[in-house]
């Protein structure tokens, strides 16, 4: 009885599925899905190698400082870094006074101690990086109706994040003629910028890094657009995962211990089962 019921239920699901399959196949043949412009022209990120990659990777603090400089001089105009506090910058090798000086350059929300009115005051090391815009409406108004996202977690919030940021920053270009030929309707709307690494190919961010030497690096590294893009990507790997080094450094002894314990355990196991065929 139960087997007859079960075969009936099985047939019910199978037929319903075949019905869906048939209908799907029919429409697939009658109107094959056309390739979209994103499918045809979106590119996977370019390769980027960083010191923090790999099983033994550690941060290149010089590079992080350069990357911070790019953020500080360019990106902060539009992007916040709200999960990072100024004091965290000590991990990049800045000393207390330098951190204080950096914090003081930023205006953070405050309260007038005499009147209680909201105002702004220079940042302190315990403050977090402030928002560049008063609110989302202001952010949209200034950015062609797009909100510049917070960058703290950017490299973890995209596939292959660091390479993505690097590719995006170096990927601004003219819309290819082939694209317009194939998809005449896909012309980049006014105010947006063509970038094949962005998911829908047109983004509201104007190319932020446009000229070599836009930032004058304190360590004297030549600041090409490519170099600045790499550095800021590396910096954003740190903001997204400040515990990356500690994580890998902890991992090795843990794995070493587990390997040792497993080998001992295996020897004990062999010893115990020595005379027991199984």
């Amino acid at each position: 009885m139960i087997r007859i019921l079960s075969i009936l239920v099985g047939l019910f699901f199978s037929l319903a599925l075949l019905w869906s399959l048939g209908k799907g196949a029919a429409s697939f043949i009658s109107e094959p899905p056309a390739a979209t412009v994103e499918q045809a022209f979106h590119k996977p990120p370019r390769e980027l190698r960083l010191a923090s990659d790999g099983l033994f990777g550690t941060f290149d603090k010089q590079q992080l400082q350069r990357g911070f400089q790019v953020y500080d001089e360019v990106c902060k105009a539009c992007h916040s870094l709200r999960l990072v506090a100024f004091r965290d910058l000590k991990a990049l090798g800045y000393n207390d006074d330098e951190v204080k000086a950096i914090a003081a350059k930023y205006q953070v929300p405050g309260v007038d101690p005499n009147t209680g009115e909201a105002n702004t005051r220079p940042g302190r090391p315990t403050d977090f990086f402030p928002q560049p815009f008063a609110n989302d409406i202001a952010a949209r108004a200034a950015n062609n109706n797009a909100i510049p996202p917070d960058l703290s977690l950017m490299t973890k919030a995209r596939h292959d994040g660091a390479a993505y940021v690097y590719s995006l920053l170096t990927g601004f270009q003219e819309q290819p003629a082939a694209l317009l030929k194939q998809f005449p309707d896909a012309r980049t709307p006014a105010g947006l910028h063509y970038n094949p690494y962005f998911a829908n190919l047109n983004l509201a961010m104007a190319p932020p890094l446009t000229a070599d030497g836009q930032v004058t690096y304190k360590d004297g590294t030549r600041s090409t657009v490519d170099q600045m893009s790499r550095d800021v990507a590396a910096f954003l790997v740190w903001t997204a995962e400040p515990k990356l080094e500690k994580r890998k450094q902890t991992g090795w002894p843990v794995l070493g211990f587990l390997l040792f314990a497993t080998i001992l355990g295996n020897l004990a196991y062999r010893n115990i089962w020595r005379d027991m065929k199984h």
């Binding site: 919030a157 596939h159 994580r247 991992g251 843990v254 497993t262 355990g265 115990i272």
Partner: peptide, 30 residues
């Protein structure tokens, strides 16, 4: 106990390798 014990060690080794070296491998960036 001996057999479960050593295989648990092998399991923990793989688990910790992911935990410490590729902790976001199975998650979604979004």
């Amino acid at each position: 106990i001996a057999k479960d014990g050593w295989t648990l060690g092998a399991f923990l080794f793989i688990y910790c390798a992911v935990l410490f070296f590729a902790p976001n491998m199975l998650g979604h960036p979004d």
